[in-house]
Amino acid sequence: MSIRITALSLRAAVLGLALALTWFSPAVAQSKLRVGVTLHPYYSFVANIVGDKAEIVSVIPGEVNPHGYEPGAEDIKRAMTLDALVVNGIGHDEFIFKIIEASGRKDNLPLIYANASVALIPIGGDRGGARIVNPHTFISTTAAIQQVYEIARRLGEIDPKNATLYRNNGRDYATRIRRLRADFMQRIAVHAKDDFRVATMHAGYDYLFQEFGLRVSAVIEPRHGVSPTARQLAQTSEDIRAAKVTVLFAEQYFGGNLAETVQRETGVRVYTLSHITDGPFTASKFEDEMRENIQTLARALEGQ
């Protein structure tokens, strides 16, 4: 047992060092595979899988909000040069299908659906008992690992000579993601927090909370881009009070003063989580922002 665990740890360290070195090397040659991505987490996933064996191209600018994004000419030009494209495909990057169509690549661009093998879960706190699929699979740890494996497998099919490298890199990256989760679980005694009841500003964190053993009692904005009416907000505040919610998690990149309104109305403590869909595309972004999210969860649980 210890030999296997030590072997995995050693390989993770060596490959991690190799990956770190490749990130600082000059731009990769044009002959390399060009892998497009739609969302920031996919950039990080692909960067950690391919190392220096492929070039990663963010199809849209980093600073835009992918919700309701309208493609521009530059996006279409970028899509024309890709060898493969990693997409969410289940409701978080619908803009990409317009880009693919406009670039004339509909029939000849291999699409990697990151969620193809992820077991989807419903939106938490949804009203009426309906189970509506949550597309935020990338704000997670365990579900993120599944996506890393799916992307590595599909890239290996597209680029067979590097398939083993992609698989091994993917596994080492998965080990680091799992360690992030384990550090939190070792730090916080969630089970001792029976009075910890959560509401979220946005139905983006169900995978993350499920993996950390937290339950969402209410969601204030149960659909993307749909702001609640005054009546719905009043009802939500009532629900939060009735459910004895103690903590509200707001969205880092979403504007408006909904969180403040709810805090004022109900007295809950408000914390901010990252949706990991804004700012520069980097290899470390997913780990960096997930680490921040996990630290935020820890502070919320510790009542700080």
Binding site: L111, N115, A116, T137
Partner: peptide, 15 residues
């Protein structure tokens, strides 16, 4: 499992 592939098929037809 209700997978992303299933949801994709529901949304866009079989891929």
């Amino acid at each position: 499992a209700y997978s992303g592939a299933d949801e994709l098929a529901r949304l866009k037809g079989k891929q």
